[in-house]
Design a protein around this nucleic acid. Sequence first.
DNA 1: ATAATATATCAAGATTTATTGATTTAATAT
DNA 2: ATATTAAATCAATAAATCTTGATATATTAT
Lengths: 107, 107
Amino acid sequence: MDIFLETVSALNDETRMKLLAFLDTHGSLCVCDMQESFGMIQSRLSRHLKILKDGGFLRVDRCGTWAYYSIRSPLDRFRSEALAEIRCLNLDLPPLKKLSQNEGCTL
Amino acid sequence: MDIFLETVSALNDETRMKLLAFLDTHGSLCVCDMQESFGMIQSRLSRHLKILKDGGFLRVDRCGTWAYYSIRSPLDRFRSEALAEIRCLNLDLPPLKKLSQNEGCTL
DNA sequence: ATAATATATCAAGATTTATTGATTTAATAT
DNA sequence: ATATTAAATCAATAAATCTTGATATATTAT
């Protein structure tokens, strides 16, 4: 029960739906670029990303101090359907602002 | 967005997951029987059932003062997957206590 | 008409979750 | 070593949700 509730409650937030849609569109992004794109403070983003990761939606690749988040693949059926629903919502997403000049990492 | 969030937040509660599992097992039930089975006060159940109905999971058939709730059919893909997940959880459900002597309604 | 039953809704308090700003940890650059 | 940058975590407050008890509405029974 708890595991599924954790998955559901990860979905249960407008900010997190937009983050999923954003990562779905742009692939792998570091926290600072999402922070810049969404105009949110870092602690807020970090918390939401952790909830999405714990809910089984995201993977993290660490590279020095950078953390690159992306949508886990493959997703199970429930999470896939959730993502499909989110795609259909045509959420109003901010433009991607890439600030990080992190050439050292190849993911 | 709001419609899908309403669907997700309907799922986002342990009591409501159990109600879905209970109705999935027993079919169509009136509020008073669920109230008796779960040992919950009526206003609490009524509220949760409304949230599940507004979230698109349940239908209601009214019959005099009785309201019979059951799982909507057909469910769309997302809600079907959610129900499938809930079935797999093997939730600890109370035994069904049927009190209502409502023979007048044939649903 | 009155009483009893089934359900829905409302208001208040309790609980949970989200946001912010500050602090911490760790890696990189000077 | 010091400063800077990226990210995570913590504590306090704000906001949303859940629970309870009371009330309202509507139907059925006497």
